[in-house]
Nucleic acid binder design. Structure first.
Lengths: 162, 162
DNA sequence: TAGGTAATTGTTATATTATTACATCAGAAA
DNA sequence: TTTCTGATGTAATAATATAACAATTACCTA
């Protein structure tokens, strides 16, 4: 079986339907395992986020959710986003105030994010070397890590070779 | 001469006046060298930011600036912040929507930020190993770096030993 | 199946963060 | 003096996010 992390969304010919169905399938499975509910709204928001590999703004999601949920309000979106983040199904991109689907929700969730300024796509990388250097650095500083946001902005390989 | 980076703000007995005068001195010097103006407002905002090693919110700065600049408005603060960031004199902490003085403005500006959840102080570290691992990772991904935000949240050594 | 409870969603209002556009002013250069 | 540039004043508004409370739904168990 293909795993989420084996797909590279930057390649223009990637099968995005496969991305989406893998992501939603994994999400459902994880929620089942954890005894939490992937309700209709949460499922819809996750699906909207997965429409592309770009980070999406909350109010853009709201606009896109409204046709499906006539009563949707900001709180509707933010609650769904909170849930999806808690469950590790999406990333909050701090430097963009935006949200992107996580392709590694079943594994190590904290990843390095490579954010392309041109195509706006966000790539996740486990970046083991970076993470271990980070651990070492924190250890030296006597700092106990709770969470990390590692966000790199630049030009992705696909855009720079075009 | 003591350099900014030799001081550790986490040690409760550090001489903060020294931090401030070093920071403001370096800032003035850099602005002179670059032929840009550290105007009264910009100097005041930088001074307010340096009142502590905590990240400060824009509207909190505004409140604290108003006694000094009766006409100050949001744009006043955001313009000063934009300038200070451009000149590398402060960091924007993306994950807090807040701002903190930079102790390495005369050197490599992009640093790892260690943000304590208890005392709220922000420590900067050049973290050479992390940065080189990051470069290597980007290279492998064919990604051209423009800028980085590396923000680690947790408990600082000072707080965890208290 | 009825009743209790916790989780989810609906709804309104508002807080917080940030930008845009245009007017004015101050200082350096022609 | 005129002109240009950068900085600031000012008003309005856009964009992002949360709080508080009511209503509904899902689920457990007696």
């Amino acid at each position: 079986m293909t795993s989420l992390t084996e797909l590279n969304q930057y390649s223009s010919e990637h099968n995005h339907n496969q991305c989406v169905s893998l992501a939603l399938g994994t999400a459902q499975q994880l929620c089942n395992q954890r005894g939490v509910l992937l309700t209709t709204i949460r499922h819809q928001v996750l699906t909207l986020i997965w429409e592309s590999h770009k980070a999406v703004k909350a109010y853009e999601l709201l606009d896109r959710l409204r046709p499906l949920q006539a009563t949707a309000k900001p709180a509707t979106i933010y609650r769904a986003l909170d849930f999806l983040i808690e469950q590790g199904l999406i990333h909050r991109v701090e430097s963009l105030n935006a949200f992107v689907g996580c392709r590694c929700s079943d594994q190590q969730h904290e990843q390095l994010l490579l954010i392309c300024k041109l195509c706006e796509q966000v790539d996740e990388r486990p970046a083991a070397e970076v993470m271990s250097a980070l651990l070492e650095e924190s250890k030296q500083a006597g700092f106990m890590i709770h969470s990390k946001a590692i966000e790199i902005h630049g030009i992705c390989s696909d855009c720079s070779t075009k």
